[in-house]
Amino acid sequence: MSVFVDISPTPDAPAEEPAADAPETRWRARLSRAGLPLLSVAVFLLAWQLAAASGIWNQTFVPYPSTVWRAFVDISTTHDGVRGYAGYLLWEHLYMTLRRVAAGVVIGVVLGVLLGLVMGSIGWVRSVLEPWLTFLRALPPLAYFFLLVIWLGIDEAPKITLLALAALPPAAVATTAAVVAAPVGLQEAARALGASRAAVIRDVVIPSALPETFTGIRLAVGMAYSSVVAAELFNGIPGVGGLVKDASNYNNTPVVLVGIFAIGFSGLVIDGLLRAVERRAVPWRGKV
């Protein structure tokens, strides 16, 4: 005897929805992530073009996007016997700026993270150094840059020192806060299992603090970038900050905007690289 069971869906049964990780869904999400930034850029360029064409502002203040593009091409090439700006191409200006930023950030971040580990682990050190760190964070770069020039001259030393001092406080503060917030239960469990103080810091505190430390590093890079124009006020050519400062002396707004965009776009690229490194180094962020 055979039994036949009708397993066809009833007419009112809901249709199966595509899986969340279906290829179409992933491609739609990727297109959305890429399309929205591009759309925002297009809207910005359109608003800029309309503002320049309105005639409300003089071209010295709001040049056309095409004028800025021509300035970009001129700075990036040799034309009419003139090589770039002040004898250097744009990529050479950017290279010198990035080299200074890299040196300052490495020094500032390494010292800041080490200082944060010590301050987060030893209470009396935190009590002694925290007011000085807050004092340094509150100072704008120009407040002490001229003092650095008096002490160190106008070559590379004051520039790199300024960028290091700008990068140090965010890294130190973020690391200190992360170390202090490390789970006490995990630390006590490690000690109960016989781990030494150094082992607890290495195996429990540092992995727990890494996510916030990376946030501090990204903030440190941002602070260094925001200080780069100040760092290149003196003898800053070649350098994007020196280019911006020199062009502003002659009200050369297109060149100033090219320099600003160069700093901003390179900052976006570096921040993206840091986020990629963070995803690799701290895959557990947001999952525990």
Rank of each mutant, 00 (worst) to 15 (best):
P65S: 12
G104V: 01
S76K: 04
R33G: 12
L45A: 11
L142K: 06
R83C: 00
P63K: 08
G81A: 13
P37H: 11
A138H: 08
A34D: 03
R100T: 05
A86T: 03
V109W: 02
L148R: 04
L36W: 14
T97D: 03
V109R: 03
L90D: 03
Y64V: 09
L38K: 07
V73K: 07
L111V: 14
G120F: 11
L38H: 07
R137H: 12
V68W: 02
G108I: 06
G123K: 04
F44W: 13
I75A: 13
I122N: 07
H79P: 00
S66C: 00
W91M: 13
P131N: 07
R100H: 13
G116T: 01
V125Q: 09
A34L: 15
G108C: 10
L139T: 06
L39C: 10
S76P: 05
G116V: 01
L114N: 09
L38G: 12
V113Y: 02
L147W: 02
E130A: 12
R83Y: 00
E92Y: 08
T134R: 04
S54V: 11
Y144W: 11
A103R: 09
G108M: 09
W151Q: 06
V118Y: 07
G55Y: 05
E130K: 05
V73L: 10
W69K: 13
R126W: 02
H79S: 13
S121Q: 08
G104E: 05
D155P: 00
W57K: 00
V62H: 08
G112R: 04
Y64L: 15
R99L: 09
Y144S: 06
I154W: 02
Q49P: 04
H79E: 14
P140V: 02
L115N: 02
L152Q: 10
L45P: 01
F61V: 15
L50D: 06
L114I: 09
S127N: 08
S76T: 07
A86K: 11
L89M: 10
Y144L: 06
L148H: 07
R100M: 12
G108D: 08
Y85Q: 00
W57I: 01
Q59A: 15
A47W: 10
Y85K: 00
A34T: 02
F145I: 10
Y95F: 15
A71G: 12
I75L: 06
G84H: 06
L36C: 07
L139C: 10
L90H: 08
A86P: 00
Q59W: 10
